[in-house]
């Protein structure tokens, strides 16, 4: 079965890049421009993974992770955060909120796929 991944980023180009990479790899992709948009679209498909940016207007990545984790359906959903902060602070904040893993921007398509594979196989 095709796996569904939601990519959340306020930058259309990053989003486009991520979804292009994922679609090429055979995933079904749902795009959202920020946390709030993501929550509104979360039931469009049975998600297997969320790839989210952290710095976003309206609802940021950390808030989104907390919201998703509180949903019974997605209690165990893998969530990968996109982070530029190589400092641990933001990463730890995301981890504590329930993120599964992270990928540090900038990244290459193959790096993204490698991290996804690590998380959902």
């Amino acid at each position: 079965m095709t796996k569904s991944i939601m990519t959340v980023d306020d930058s259309a180009s990053v989003r486009q890049m991520v979804s292009f990479t994922l679609r090429e790899a055979g995933y079904n992709v749902i795009e959202a421009s920020d946390g709030k948009d993501a929550v509104s679209k979360i039931n469009l498909a049975d998600l297997n993974l969320i790839v989210t940016d952290l710095n976003m207007p309206n609802m940021d990545g950390i808030e989104l992770i907390k919201t998703v984790r509180s949903m019974p359906k997605y209690k165990f959903l893998p969530i990968i955060m996109l982070t530029t902060e190589s400092q641990n602070e933001k990463k730890m904040e995301g981890k504590n909120a329930g993120a599964t893993g992270w990928i540090v921007k900038p990244f290459k398509p193959e790096q993204l796929l490698a991290v996804i594979k690590k998380v959902i196989g």
Binding site: S13, V14, M17, M56, K105, P106
Partner: peptide, 21 residues
Amino acid sequence: TFRALHTIKGSSAMFGYDDIT
């Protein structure tokens, strides 16, 4: 401001604009 800079940095790296990054 921070977000704008952050996004420019993030996406420029992915499209090969290493100098911008």
